[in-house]
């Protein structure tokens, strides 16, 4: 029996879709049968971030309306064994799906897959209700900004109210240089405010834009700092105890020298 995890945030543009894509590829690379569901009906994007936009035939609405079988709508990602995408409909609105239909779909998918990862739309309306309906776990994505943290707090309250216990926090787009000079909230500041457990910190990384341009999630890129952070989250999902690296630690001469001579930091 698989696990259903919803990736949510409240605020838009903080990296829900990027996170969903990267965790999906990350889990597939670890040999897990994984399906990603885009629930952002009308504003679908997980397909382009994954580089699978040209292979869509059926979508989520077709499935819940019974116009096709679930199997027919799943796009198999040929690059990563065991990875599938169920895209959102682009020409419908959020009310085309109900929470009950989502719950039924998730129950069906978790029979066959190890992980069902749901990409939630921004906001707290119908799309959010649909996205969380079938989930038993939630990851809340935020960036170190007041607006994103405030919305994350609201989402955490709504998840609790809907009996999704222990949501985990992903802090995205951290700028270590800004944290060091006191112009960006630290991870501890954010945890202090939101009072939930951390599952990952993603540094701000240009590679994310490059990999999104290409439709190849950064988690598969060995050289990307964000990719490494996503690989660490993947391992934590699988139950491994991966220590958190302090991204804001001041570089000393030794690590600078090592970097200069091409040694990877330990």
């Amino acid at each position: 029996m698989g696990e259903v995890i919803v990736i949510t945030s409240g605020k838009g543009g903080v990296g829900k879709t990027t996170t969903t894509a990267n965790l999906g590829v990350g889990l597939a690379l670890q040999g897990k049968k994984t399906v990603l569901i885009d629930t952002d009906i009308g504003l679908r994007n997980l397909d382009v971030v994954m580089g699978l936009e040209n292979r869509i035939v059926y979508d989520l609405v077709d499935v819940v309306e019974g116009s096709c079988r679930v199997k027919q709508a799943l796009i198999k990602d040929k690059r990563y064994d065991g990875l599938h995408l169920l895209p959102a409909a682009q020409t419908r609105d959020k009310n085309a799906v109900t929470p009950e239909q989502m719950e039924k779909l998730c129950d069906e998918l978790k029979e066959e897959f190890d992980y069902v990862i749901i990409d939630c739309p921004a906001g707290i309306e119908q799309g959010f209700k649909n996205a969380i309906a079938g989930a038993s776990r939630a990851f809340v994505v935020t960036t170190p900004e007041v607006s994103a943290v405030r919305d994350a707090d609201r989402i955490i309250g709504l998840l609790e109210a809907n009996d999704i216990r222990n949501p985990r926090l992903i802090v995205n787009r951290l700028r270590p240089d800004m944290v060091r000079r006191g112009d960006m909230m630290t991870i501890d500041d954010i945890i202090d405010i939101l009072a939930i457990e951390l599952i990952g910190v993603i540094p701000d990384d240009e590679n994310i834009i490059v990999s999104t341009n290409r439709g190849e999630p950064a988690v598969a890129d060995a050289k990307s700092a964000a990719g490494l952070a996503y690989r660490n989250i993947t391992r934590r999902i699988l139950g491994e105890d991966v220590p958190f690296v302090d991204l804001t630690a001041q570089e000393n001469i030794l690590t600078k020298m090592k970097k200069l001579f091409g040694f990877k930091p330990a």
């Binding site: 007041v146 707090d153 609201r154 112009d183 405010i193």
Partner: peptide, 19 residues
């Protein structure tokens, strides 16, 4: 005063109301 401390204080206050 660091801007991140200003951010944290403002957030704490606004969340009391939101919550």
């Amino acid at each position: 005063e660091n801007s991140k401390d200003v951010a944290k204080e403002r957030l704490k206050l606004v969340l009391i109301h939101d919550r």
